[in-house]
Amino acid sequence: MTPEEFQELLLRYQRNEATAEEQQRIHAWYDRLAADSQEELPAAERPPLQAKLWSTIRERIDEPEPEIQIRPLRKAGWYVGVAASILLVLSIGLWFWTQSSVNSGQLAFHTAAPLITARGPQTLTLSDQSQVTLLQGSSLRYSSTFTGKLREVDLQGTAFFQITKNPEKPFLVHTGSLETKVLGTSFWVRHQPKQSYVQVQVVTGKVSVQQDQNQVILVPNQLVTYSREKPWLQTGLVQNPLVVDASVSMRFKDVPLLRVVERLEKRYGISLLIKQSALRQCPFTGDLTGLGLYEQLGMICQALNATYQSDGTQILLQGAGCR
């Protein structure tokens, strides 16, 4: 049960709209909370403990339902007063919780913002006309309208973002301890909270990914990964690079490798380096149309007796030279 659902339940209880089962659940929850304290605190000592109490409430309401025991019912008014007290603490606790999230670099807007959990692939259109496609089981919390200087969302799971360009109001995606900042672009974000794993892949445009004081800038076909096992920003290339400039011809006839590499860089927006100078002038002939980048590199290397390997966000070609 979310904090908002719990708060709504308490409000229904106060208005005498809760069902008999819901009333019994509230009574049982409070009895279990009350059992944690053997004395009543003076009013002056309560405010410092409100955030801690809210944390306890969150833990308790998600525990398995307690076994209902037959006991003399207390007066309904007593429980209504308790519900009112918990609502007060709950409201203040929500404020503390929100402020804590802001201070730790998490979502800056109130946690009461809409939360969507996709049961299957689902595309959402945000108030700025940006579109977010959530994969099954992924959740997105976002403001119904973006106010202030930023557009912010909180993601758990995997989603594809197509962001409406607005240089005056950057778009921020919060995923655990990572923050992805864009002005207008499209990209993937994969977030697995339990493993503290986040990966950002850029399709078009440019994004900034930040973790604490560390920051990297990504362009198309680049990615960054952060995980509990490797707690630093690891940059690399996507598994299947997409074409960013389809006008570049992939037909070659006795073209020096240096010129072949220049075409590949333009077509995919990826940096390729030739390690040995003797390899740069080796001529290549072939039609690579319709093949993926790594298939194209495989054919080039086979023809020139060379090899290639990824090194961060670039590809390194090396070999002894022409046969």
Score class of each variant (00 low, 15 high):
G81N: 15
I70M: 08
F96D: 08
I68N: 04
A35P: 10
E63N: 09
E21M: 08
S104T: 04
L73H: 11
L107F: 09
E22S: 01
R25H: 10
E65R: 11
I26E: 02
L90H: 15
E59L: 15
R58D: 06
L94Q: 14
Y79C: 05
E65C: 08
S37T: 11
G77V: 12
S55L: 05
A83M: 04
L87N: 07
I61R: 04
S85F: 15
E40D: 13
Q24S: 06
E65L: 12
S55V: 02
E59G: 12
A34G: 05
I70E: 13
T98F: 11
L49T: 07
W78G: 07
A43L: 07
S101C: 03
S55W: 02
E63V: 01
E45Q: 10
R46L: 02
T56D: 14
I57S: 01
L53R: 10
I68K: 08
Q99G: 10
Q69V: 09
I86Q: 09
I26M: 07
W78H: 14
D31C: 10
E65S: 15
A35I: 00
W97D: 14
Q38P: 12
W29V: 00
H27R: 11
P66L: 03
S37H: 14
Q38C: 08
G81S: 15
G81P: 14
S91Q: 12
A43T: 01
A20S: 06
A44H: 01
R32P: 03
E22D: 02
L90Q: 13
K52N: 05
Q23S: 03
E67W: 13
E21H: 06
S101T: 03
K75W: 15
Q99C: 06
A28M: 02
L49S: 04
T19V: 05
R60P: 03
F96S: 07
I70L: 07
A34Q: 09
A51C: 01
D36A: 13
T98P: 04
I26L: 10
V80R: 15
R58A: 07
P48I: 00
I70Q: 12
T98Q: 15
S101A: 06
A84P: 03
I68D: 06
A28L: 04
R58N: 11
A108T: 14
D62E: 11
K75N: 15
G93V: 06
Q23L: 01
I61T: 03
I61H: 09
S37E: 14
R74G: 09
I70W: 09
L94C: 12
P48H: 00
V89M: 07
R32Y: 03
L107C: 06
R60K: 13
N103M: 15
